[in-house]
């Protein structure tokens, strides 16, 4: 009689490490392209800003870039994978839901590395330009918003405060948030492109209809909801830039000068709460998406 010792499946840890390696290998091309762009950017900064003697401030939270990269990365991570058919990934001896999550985590690891490099680059450029990182800044705050026309400099309130080091985490949390949302789509939706394009078309169509019919009054609540979703206190912008993108505006003074003024000041507490909210939502959606591939169901 034949004695066959059964083979054990691999540890999840080994599968995860291998996914990190493979995802990393797959990202080589985009990484090379990014490196070239970074080189060009450095050159431009060196020539234009540093040449003029500008001091570049170190505010990583101002940048939308990490959020964008997080949003787009799942495309590179999942491109070509046969997720809803007999894909190669599913023939391996790992539970499919866990394997999908492992790949998401693998992509996230590379994302964090990339964001760290970005922040480091900002820091170096900033230091080289002569910025004193934790020195106090003078921020001009407007008393009311919106304001008409040119501003009287006398109405501006000047607040002096040092940058908040916690906000240096914003690129990381922003990228994580968008990455989770985009990963949920990449993992859970059979034809993500169709959904994205379809949604964009529907939204565009509705916007045109509302415009033509001048029915903005009817959908005011919806518009308000969208507004809140995007730029509200716990909206997308809070996740992406701690709301600095919304709060910072260019204004023309009565003196003719164009300066940056603040509608309000970013709050760490608000940012932390919003980040928690978005991250939890992202995690839940990723889990649900991965569960579409779980193994113990009957057809």
């Amino acid at each position: 009689m034949m004695q066959t010792a059964l083979h054990p499946p691999p540890h999840l840890r080994d599968a995860l490490l291998e996914q990190v390696r493979v995802v990393g290998l797959g990202l080589r091309r985009p990484a090379q392209a990014a490196a070239v762009l970074a080189g060009l950017a450095t050159l431009l900064v060196a020539i234009i800003d540093l040449g003029q003697g500008d001091v570049i401030d170190f505010h990583p939270e101002d940048w939308m870039l990490p959020g964008m990269v997080g949003l787009l990365l799942p495309i590179a991570v999942w491109t070509g994978e046969d997720r809803f058919g007999p894909g190669f990934l599913w023939t391996l001896p790992v539970d499919r839901r866990r394997h999908a999550l492992a790949r998401v985590v693998a992509g996230w690891a590379w994302l964090m590395g990339t964001v760290a490099l970005f922040v480091l680059w900002l820091l170096v450029v900033s230091l080289v330009s002569g910025e004193r990182i934790l020195a106090e800044e003078a921020l001009r705050v407007v008393p009311n918003w919106p304001f008409p026309g040119a501003l009287d400099p006398a109405t501006l309130r000047v607040v002096r405060r040092a940058p908040e080091p916690l906000f240096w985490l914003v690129p990381f949390t922003a990228a994580t948030g968008t990455y989770l949302l985009a990963s949920a789509v990449a993992v859970g939706v059979r034809h993500p492109l169709r959904w994205i394009v379809g949604t964009a078309l529907v939204v565009g169509f509705l916007a045109a209809v509302v415009d033509i019919a001048d029915a903005s009054r009817l959908i005011r609540p919806l518009l308000d909801a969208v507004d809140s979703f995007l730029v509200g206190p716990y909206g997308l912008d809070t996740l992406l830039t701690a709301r600095t993108e919304t709060l910072k505006v260019d204004a023309t003074l009565t003196t003719g000068e164009t300066v940056i003024v603040w509608r309000g000041l970013p709050s760490v507490g608000q940012w932390a709460a919003a980040t928690l909210l978005w991250t939890c939502a992202g995690l839940a959606l990723v889990w649900a998406a991965a569960s579409r591939h779980r193994e113990r169901r009957r057809a």
Binding site: L6, P9, P10, T91, L92, P93, D95, R296, R297
Partner: peptide, 13 residues
């Protein structure tokens, strides 16, 4: 169906 990963660990496909 219930023990997919364990089954696949025994298989060369």
């Amino acid at each position: 169906a219930a023990r997919g990963p364990e089954v696949r660990a025994q298989v060369g496909y």
